[in-house]
Amino acid sequence: MKNLICLACFLITLVSFSQKDFILTIGDESHEIALDESNEFKVNGKAITISVREKDTLVYEDSFYNFKYIKDYSISKTVLEEGIEQIMIMTASGSGVLIQKYEAFDPTMLQEMMLNEVTKESISYGYTMERQDYERALVSGQKLEILKSVLEYKGEIETYEITALGGKDEGILIMTMNMNDEIDPEGVEMINLMWNSLHIK
Score class of each variant (00 low, 15 high):
D28E: 13
D106K: 06
G96E: 02
I50S: 12
F64D: 00
D133K: 00
D106P: 06
D184E: 01
V79T: 14
L138S: 01
L165A: 09
M90G: 00
M177Y: 04
C9M: 12
F67Q: 07
P107M: 04
I70R: 04
E103V: 03
E186A: 11
I84V: 15
Y69A: 13
K101D: 00
I26G: 10
N39W: 07
S38G: 07
I172K: 00
G171S: 06
K77G: 08
Y153H: 15
M114N: 13
E29G: 05
L98G: 01
E85Y: 08
K154G: 06
G167I: 03
V188K: 12
G166S: 05
G171E: 04
Q132T: 15
L110H: 14
L35S: 10
F17Y: 13
E170W: 11
I157S: 08
Y160A: 06
Y65E: 04
K68I: 03
M113C: 10
N116P: 10
L11D: 12
I174G: 03
M114F: 10
E145A: 13
M88S: 14
L173F: 00
L24W: 13
D181C: 05
M179W: 06
L58R: 13
E170H: 08
T49K: 15
Q19M: 15
K2L: 11
L147N: 10
M194A: 04
D184C: 02
D62V: 03
V97L: 15
I84E: 14
M1P: 04
T78W: 01
I191R: 01
N39Y: 12
E81L: 09
A47S: 14
S95E: 11
L151E: 00
L198A: 01
N39F: 12
E170S: 07
D184W: 01
N180R: 04
Q19A: 15
L165G: 06
M190F: 07
I157K: 11
I23N: 12
K20Y: 12
T176K: 09
N66F: 07
I84Q: 12
S197N: 00
L115V: 09
N66S: 15
G94P: 00
I23P: 00
I70F: 06
L144R: 03
R131P: 02
S30E: 12
A137H: 08
I5N: 04
D169T: 01
E145L: 14
V43P: 09
D169Y: 04
I162E: 00
T128V: 13
V59Q: 07
T176V: 11
F41S: 09
V15R: 08
M109H: 13
Y153W: 06
N180L: 02
R53Y: 10
S51L: 04
M109G: 14
T25H: 11
K201C: 02
V43R: 09
G45E: 02
S18R: 10
K55T: 13
N196S: 09
F67P: 10
A34T: 05
K68H: 11
F22T: 09
I191A: 00
T25M: 10
A92R: 15
F64L: 04
K42E: 09
V188H: 09
I183Y: 06
L7F: 02
N44F: 05
N180H: 11
S93R: 08
Y65N: 02
G171K: 05
L58Q: 13
Q19K: 15
N66V: 03
F64I: 02
I70M: 05
G27H: 10
S197R: 04
S74F: 15
S197M: 04
E182Q: 11
G166P: 01
E103H: 12
M1S: 07
L144D: 05
S95I: 06
E61R: 15
